[in-house]
Simulated assay, not measured.
Amino acid sequence: MDWDKLRIFHAVAEAGSFTHAGDVLNLSQSAVSRQISALEDVLQVPLFHRHARGLILTEQGETLHKTVRDVFSKLEMTQALLTESKEKAAGRLRITTTTGFGTCWLMPRLQKFMSANPEIDICLILEDNDLDLGMREADVAVRMHAPRQPDLIQRHLADFHLPVFAAPEYIEKYGEPKTLDELVDHQIVAFGEHHPPVADINWLTTYLETKGLKKSARLEVNSMATMASAIASGLGIGSIPTYAAKEFPNLVQILKDIPSPTANAYFVYPEELRSSKRVAVFRDFLMSELGIR
């Protein structure tokens, strides 16, 4: 199997079309198509189902893609480690974290990190679903749960509480609940639509359901930062991490005597990057900003 053909196959499999892969590779659509056809001739199996809306990998194509993707991921990691300066941290660092933590906590602090490390370029990927660090979808992650993959290095960073908040305008209009049971008479803002990045973010509605006081949220939104904004604008009562609440000084913490869950934040990276200076300086920066010694 010719290396150039495998490189083109990888680009096509990732892009889902000859045209888009050609744009990435700076090749014409016809040149890309010819290379894929030549690879299929060598292997004597079809790699793609071709249809009007694009390309779909065949079973054989999926098998080849998995191997080629792993090879390219390993090569990319090796290149980064080989080119990294032995004296100082340098190069590109791909960081993934949840949209809420990235928007509310990390982004306001990135300028400080990048000023202190002028030779590190950042690619920040905000995604509530976990990216596969083993497959090099990112270099490091800050997650609100312990890593589920066994081959990742983890460092517990912080426990962020999930207090209950409301806006002064909401309290003035609807009153302030004194117990969790009273929330059944209030408007609740919750995280909705898909698996939440913080496990207990909807603990208020969960509590009401366990008490037989079934109460649907008045507003569901799949963004922690937008939840905070909605609560601050008076749309309802909600529980959000303290790092999100700090962006809205007008928020009032209510039900203070009620114990609230916590979100456990972890810094995670693959074993291969254990000796990376870029990873080390970013880890130390996080710990410093969070007051960890």
Results as ranks from 00 to 15, higher is better:
164 V>K: 01
164 V>Q: 04
165 F>Y: 15
165 F>R: 06
166 A>V: 07
167 A>E: 00
168 P>S: 14
168 P>R: 14
170 Y>C: 10
171 I>Q: 10
172 E>S: 13
173 K>D: 10
173 K>V: 05
174 Y>S: 11
174 Y>N: 14
175 G>W: 13
175 G>I: 12
175 G>M: 09
176 E>K: 14
177 P>V: 13
181 D>M: 14
182 E>P: 09
182 E>D: 13
183 L>C: 03
184 V>I: 09
184 V>G: 09
185 D>G: 04
185 D>N: 14
185 D>P: 01
186 H>C: 07
186 H>A: 02
186 H>V: 03
187 Q>T: 08
187 Q>V: 03
188 I>M: 00
189 V>C: 10
189 V>N: 11
190 A>C: 15
193 E>C: 04
194 H>G: 01
194 H>N: 06
196 P>Q: 13
198 V>F: 05
199 A>H: 15
200 D>Q: 09
202 N>K: 04
202 N>W: 03
203 W>D: 04
205 T>Q: 09
205 T>D: 05
205 T>R: 02
206 T>R: 08
206 T>K: 01
207 Y>S: 07
207 Y>P: 05
207 Y>D: 06
208 L>R: 14
208 L>H: 14
209 E>A: 15
210 T>I: 12
210 T>L: 11
212 G>Q: 11
213 L>R: 15
213 L>W: 09
217 A>V: 09
218 R>C: 12
218 R>H: 15
219 L>A: 04
220 E>M: 12
220 E>K: 13
222 N>D: 15
222 N>P: 14
224 M>K: 03
224 M>Y: 06
225 A>P: 00
225 A>R: 04
225 A>V: 04
226 T>N: 07
226 T>C: 01
228 A>F: 00
228 A>S: 12
229 S>R: 08
229 S>V: 00
229 S>K: 10
230 A>N: 08
230 A>T: 11
232 A>F: 07
234 G>K: 08
235 L>F: 10
235 L>C: 10
236 G>H: 03
236 G>I: 06
237 I>G: 00
237 I>M: 02
239 S>Q: 05
241 P>L: 01
243 Y>A: 02
243 Y>I: 09
243 Y>S: 08
244 A>T: 03
244 A>V: 01
244 A>P: 05
244 A>W: 03
244 A>E: 01
245 A>Q: 06
246 K>R: 13
246 K>V: 12
246 K>G: 02
246 K>S: 11
247 E>C: 11
247 E>W: 02
247 E>G: 06
248 F>S: 01
249 P>L: 11
249 P>D: 10
249 P>Y: 09
249 P>G: 13
250 N>T: 11
250 N>D: 09
250 N>I: 05
251 L>N: 03
252 V>M: 09
254 I>S: 07
255 L>H: 07
255 L>D: 02
255 L>S: 07
258 I>D: 08
258 I>Y: 13
259 P>M: 12
259 P>H: 13
259 P>Y: 12
262 T>L: 09
263 A>N: 06
263 A>L: 06
263 A>Q: 01
264 N>V: 06
264 N>C: 10
265 A>V: 03
266 Y>S: 05
266 Y>T: 03
267 F>G: 01
